[in-house]
Design a protein around this nucleic acid. Sequence first.
DNA 1: CCCTGTTAGTTAGGTTTTACCTAATAATAA
DNA 2: TTATTATTAGGTAAAACCTAACTAACAGGG
Lengths: 139, 139
Amino acid sequence: MREREEHLFEALENLLRVKNECSSRILSECGLSDMTVKQIAYLKTIDEQGEVTFSRLAGITRNSKPTITEMVNKFVRMECVYREPCADDRRVMYIRLTEKGQRIAQAEHDALRRVIERMTETLDEREQELLIGLLKKLR
Amino acid sequence: MREREEHLFEALENLLRVKNECSSRILSECGLSDMTVKQIAYLKTIDEQGEVTFSRLAGITRNSKPTITEMVNKFVRMECVYREPCADDRRVMYIRLTEKGQRIAQAEHDALRRVIERMTETLDEREQELLIGLLKKLR
DNA sequence: CCCTGTTAGTTAGGTTTTACCTAATAATAA
DNA sequence: TTATTATTAGGTAAAACCTAACTAACAGGG
């Protein structure tokens, strides 16, 4: 009981450590180790929304348009984002993620991918199925 | 192969979601949902160090002493921390965590504990041993 | 085709909050 | 006396917002 819980704790802690190492490595590879949680959340929103204009992002994030302009300018300086003019309406600009911006927006996701890569390297097929079965039980 | 990786992904994502729900619930139970990453890190430092004075914390965190005074005052207002005068030397003050402060400093840890609680509820002994064995393989 | 009104994003010029700092001060210890 | 602990006073710089005013571009009616 108590001892087994301790082992479970260590095993899970190890798993999380591996994942966190991966995601913070991604950030530092981008040279942006001190990004705030908020900034990452904005990049994720841009990533998820696809075609986002300034007005749209202002609406979604409940900020004024000047705030968005400022934010985008900062992200442009960080090379996470660029403006793409809309072909149909020359007033509107799309906010697009650069490769760097995408890597940051998807850092969590990618970190999990890397953990899985390691798993598929260290566990055989039967073991993988077993692990999936066990984790699926948790709801 | 591909499909199994997908299942692994879903299973792990679920695990992380459960853990994150737990830790953010702890924060909101304390009525401090908008704490910054930095603030939580400071509380963790205080928690880990045990007997911390103002000068000591200034040294550890490489801030000036007035900055620490200010930070502690804010934490006192948030009811995360209190001052305890040192009996031997009446110039020095220990910075101590309140119950609330401890809960926040240990939120991650507790979240993992709660996940394990669920595991011990849903998995039998054999399954738990199995899971430990599989996760231990990952280094 | 022009005029008018509307919309998209930008600029200018704030405010407020946060997170730090130095210098000076009071209380206490050695 | 001198050194050390924490505090106070007062200040800076950056972050993260805002409103109001502006420019360029579209859209519809006369």
